[in-house]
């Protein structure tokens, strides 16, 4: 039975801190073998989860959604109105995306996503969150100094642009729809998806113009 008691869990944390080795790799190895021994875990399933989030479930999915929205106005309308249904058209609905909202960058608006209270992230379309997204520094600073944080990512935001920071405090998750870069009119959906980066869908990149010299 789960206790749902804060004080009991805090005591468990203190005991674990005292008794376990400091090296995380050792602790994980011991935990995995204990769970396997108890018949609660299959190590092949662990391998399969790692493979799923390394090969299958990642920001390529989000990039596909963005490129589709850039090239198909009807899809974009569905995405803005009901993002979970729109990503489900591609089978991308899953962990943490049942209340997804899409926020669109424009010439005068830049969107930036953070979770200050934990590290909420739309796993099923962006995969595992970047480590920086989960650090105390990003969680503390993104709401307070978004322009300073963006500058560290090489993004300079003009005074005429409003920065909107979305703090994921509930089960709603946010996906930034970046602007389609100029000069990409002749590119098809697949080529466009190749321009869309993970960071641009979190908001820590703004300009997706193809790099100079890149074939169009």
């Amino acid at each position: 039975m789960t206790s749902f008691e804060s004080s009991r869990v805090a005591e468990i944390h203190r005991e674990l801190h005292t008794h376990l080795p400091s090296e995380p790799a050792l602790r994980v190895k011991a935990l995995e073998s204990l769970l396997v021994e108890k018949g609660l875990l299959d190590s092949r399933t662990v391998d399969a989860w790692v493979e799923a989030y390394t090969e299958e479930i990642g920001p390529k999915r989000g990039a596909h959604v963005v490129a589709k929205a850039w090239t198909d106005p009807a899809y974009k309308a569905r995405l803005m109105a009901d993002a979970p249904a729109a990503i489900d058209e591609f089978g991308y609905l899953g962990g943490a995306t049942s209340h997804l909202k899409v926020v669109e960058n424009t010439d005068t608006v830049h969107n930036l996503v953070v979770c200050t209270l934990c590290s909420c992230y739309p796993f099923s379309i962006l995969g595992i969150a970047p480590n920086w997204y989960k650090t105390a520094a990003y969680r503390a600073r993104a709401v307070r100094d978004p322009r300073g944080v963006l500058a560290e990512f090489g993004v300079e935001i003009g005074d005429e642009v409003e920065v909107r920071v979305w703090d994921s405090t509930a089960e709603l998750r946010y996906l930034v729809l970046p602007q389609r870069p100029a000069g990409t009119e002749d590119r098809d959906e697949t080529a466009l998806a190749g321009l869309v980066t993970r960071n641009s869908m979190i908001g820590t990149q703004r300009d997706l113009s193809p790099k100079t010299g890149e074939a169009s």
């Binding site: 790692v50 390394t54 560290e152």
Partner: peptide, 28 residues
């Protein structure tokens, strides 16, 4: 808090044990 490490690798897990943890939490 100091600067963000903007140059970290884009791989989902930076150490093998991180992927194991992710998977254990999904499976138990």
């Amino acid at each position: 808090f100091g600067p963000i490490d903007v140059d970290e690798p884009e791989t989902p897990f930076h150490y093998p044990w991180e992927g194991r943890v992710w998977a254990i939490v999904q499976s138990t």
